[in-house]
Amino acid sequence: MNETVIEARKINKSFSDPVRVQVLKDITFAVRKGEFVSVVGKSGCGKSTLLYILSTMDTDFDGDLLIDQESTTGKKEKYLAHLRNGKIGFVFQFHYLLNEFTVLENVMLPGLKLGKYPHEQVEQRAMERLKMLDIQSLALKKANKLSGGEKQRVAIARSLINDPLIVMGDEPTGNLDKKNGLIVFDIFKRMAEEYNQTLLIVTHDQEFAERTHRIIEMDDGRIIKQ
C-alpha cells in the first residue's frame, strides 16, 4: 500500500510574459497508491498549474516528475500522450466531452486509443463504468444533450476506462450546483474506498477538501501544509 504512484521533485515553474513571475517554487511531494488527496489554495496560488504539470500536458518546468516511479523528463510528446492515455484519468472543471459523439463513444475513445482490448470488450468495459456511476441509461445520447452533472459523471467514467494509476481532477465540482457537487464527491469517495483508486483533486472548496484523506495546502507557489 506504500507504492508511490506520482512524485514531484523540486518542481519550479515561471511565466515570463509580460514579466517574469515564479508560480511554483520547489514543489516536492508524493502520492501513494490508494490515497485520496486534495490540493487546496487561493485562486492564483499555482495549484492548477501544478496539476497540469503532474498530468504531463505541461512540460515546460524545472525539476523532475516521476510517474509510476519513472522519470518523465525529456520524454517525447508522443510517449507522454501514450502515458496519459494509459495511466492518467482526467476530469476537468468544464465537462469537455466531444459533442459529436454519444456518451458511450466518449467513454470508449481513450480505451480504443490505447488498443489494449478489442472493440467489443472496450464497449463492455465502458458500459460497466457507466453502470457503476448509474448513468447507463444515457449511453446512446449525444454528449451535448446532457445536463452539467450528467456530463461530469460521463467525464469521470471516461477517466476510468483504462484503469488509470491515478485520476486527476481540476475543480471537478466547481461548475456544479450543491446537489450535483455532492453526487460527484460521493463518486470520488466511493472510487477511493471501494476500488482503491488513487485520486488527486484540485479544489478551492474547503468543505470538499476536508472530507478527503489528505490535504495539500498551497500558497504563493509553495506547499505550506501537507
Partner: peptide, 16 residues
C-alpha cells in the same frame, strides 16, 4: 479547439 484539447488530454498525440 475544445475537442482537440480533450483528445490530447485523454492521450491522443499531436501526430494523431
Amino acid at each position: 479547439m475544445d475537442s482537440i484539447a480533450i483528445l490530447k488530454a485523454t492521450g491522443f498525440s499531436g501526430v494523431d
